[in-house]
Amino acid sequence: MNKGLVVGLVLVLVAVGSVVFHFLSPWWWTPLASNWGYIDDMIIITFWITGVVFVAIILFMAYCVFRYSHKEGRRAAYEPENKKMEWWLTGLTTVGVVGMLAPGVLVWGQFITVPEEASVIEVVGQQWQWSFRYPGKDGVLGTSDPQNISFENPFGLNPNDPNGQDDILIEGDDLHLPLDRPVKVLLRSKDVLHDFYVPQFRAKMDMVPGMVTYFWFTPTRVGTFEILCAELCGVGHYAMRGYVVVEEESAYQEWLQEQPTFAQLSGEARNGTGDVLNPVLSEAAADSAERGSVQ
């Protein structure tokens, strides 16, 4: 059989197969649970623009391979340049690029602009677990410093900062968030890079020791969502999990009331009656930490 035909057909198969796979794939993003529908829209726009280009290029190449495959007596055209065609193609590409860039930067502008009414919470990462802090009644998070971190004060809060006394501390338990209220998530790490990642929320951001980073979103769906770590943080990386519970305002408030404040916990710790607050490694992570090397 004609070689050009075979190779051309395979190329067509690659292009068509990719498109068919795309539409039939059972693997697609998880149902959205935040306000970031725009991000999904941007992915769709990008898919259309780039998908058309991909298919067009591959199909054109398939045509060329089929049509101009070597035959006895064929001679290639000699045409070093075609300025007009090159400028047209450059122009069209630029239009396509602008079509992705323009909405992209608009949405990025929203992504980094936190609404005024957003409430603040803090997520603290360490190898290999998550902890959470709410500002408490005064609505202000107390200051913290890594040098304050100790067995009794795992968040490293400044014991002399009045703003911190009513901060609510959650260790070894789930994060709860009220439905439909924008939340600014402050991110802090005690040791290495981590990344607070809940696929259903789309948004994520690295946590960097020595810095406070942030992102914001509004939960829009009640449910329990798994938190993963999305920045390599050592042998326990894959097992660094947690849960976010998104619930109605009333249920959220009820839960919040039951949680201990910094003042309560440090009082208990002084009296020696508090729960043990040391980091609880997940079993797998602890196990791997022991074995963690080739030799």
Binding site: L11, V14, S18, W29, W36, Y38, I39, M42, I43, T46, T50, G51, V53, F54, I57, I58, M61, V97, M100, L101, G104, V105, V107, W108, F111, D195, Y197, P199, R202, A203, K204, A230, E231
Partner: peptide
């Protein structure tokens, strides 16, 4: 090469756009 490069280049346009990169980074 052209097939794979175009394919890989195109997904680069996903990741080059910061909002699209946010959900896809580190996946």
């Amino acid at each position: 090469f052209i097939v794979t490069f175009v394919n890989g280049g195109i997904t680069g346009l996903f990741l080059g756009n910061p909002v699209v990169d946010v959900p896809l980074s580190d996946t």
